[in-house]
């Protein structure tokens, strides 16, 4: 669904080696190391402020670490030259939690999808148009093409962001809380889309999904990384990550875990015992 019919993207491997990100005295990530193989699907879970968005910004080469190395396709992103970094970025698509935009600009949905094109494609008008039409068609929002982006609801804008990722035909997709603002129907469609990506038939893209909602992690994801206070709390299989004990430690409260239709649901069951007055 994400990669084009005619051209299969080369999946991108990525890694963080002893990465620290500090802003003033705040430590957003601390000595974090993580390796993701090409084609792997990784869910990144953690409470607010755990460092999920920071890690995604590192992997998109939008943020330089204070110390440590960020690797894309086996190369140190910040040792590579600007042109090589731009070429690597062209193979990445990012879906933001919410796209900050200037409401003054009367861009149509097609215009916005066009803005997201990789630099190598941006000058080829015919290919840009073909990719826009194809992405909107694949996402089922072809009817939105001429509508002004600023007039869309939050959920509709999120669908357009997914179309932008599709149009880039990437080797790596970074999704930062992509279900924000989507209605239940679209949340389910998003999970189904990610599950489809996880199947061998359409493999060809590496995916990193950051979320704090456990049931939004599709069943086909190979690996779950639990992140807390800028450190990796757990890195392994979903069945081992999604236990009441681990999720309780992650979120700092008591939780109950239920498994339905291959997915895990995490339900809050009150504050941590130590916080309950006797």
């Amino acid at each position: 669904m994400i990669t084009g019919e005619g051209e299969r993207a080369q999946p991108l491997g990525l890694g963080a080696e002893g990465v620290t990100v500090a802003v003033g005295r705040a430590m957003l990530l601390s000595e974090l190391s993580l390796q993701v193989a090409p084609g792997e699907r990784v869910a990144l879970l953690g409470p607010n402020g755990a460092g999920k968005s920071t890690l995604l910004a590192l992997f998109n080469a939008m943020l330089r670490p204070s110390t440590g190395r960020v690797m894309l396709d086996g190369e140190d992103v910040w040792s590579a030259g600007a042109a090589r970094r731009a070429a690597l970025r062209d193979r990445i698509a990012t879906v933001f939690q919410r796209l900050e935009h200037n409401p003054l600009v009367p861009a149509t949905v097609a215009d916005v999808v066009g803005m997201a094109m990789p630099a190598a494609v941006r000058r080829n008008q015919a290919e840009v148009r073909e990719r826009i039409d194809d992405a909107l068609e694949r996402m089922g929002i072809a009817a939105f093409a001429r509508r002004p982006y600023r007039g869309l609801s939050g959920g509709e804008q999120q669908k357009v962001q997914l179309a932008m990722a599709v149009a880039r035909r990437p080797g790596l997709i970074l999704l930062d809380e992509p279900a924000t603002g989507l209605d239940l129907d679209w949340q389910e469609r998003l999970v189904a889309m990610l599950e489809e990506l996880g199947s061998a038939a359409v493999a060809g893209v590496t995916i990193m999904l950051a979320t704090h909602v456990v049931h939004q992690v599709p069943a086909g994801f190979d690996r779950v990384v639990l992140l807390k206070c800028g450190r990796v709390l757990f890195d392994g299989r979903a069945s081992e990550a999604f236990t009441a004990e681990r999720l309780g430690e992650l979120y700092g409260c008591r939780v109950e875990v239920e498994r339905r239709h291959g997915r895990t649901y995490c339900l809050g069951a009150g504050p941590a015992r130590s916080e309950v007055a006797p």
Binding site: N60, M62, A86, D90, F96, A116, A119, M164, R168
Partner: peptide, 15 residues
């Protein structure tokens, strides 16, 4: 257009 519409989008798109 990407630059005036959304700087995060422009940066993520490789502008």
């Amino acid at each position: 257009d990407a630059l005036i519409f959304s700087r995060p989008l422009a940066r993520a798109a490789g502008v």
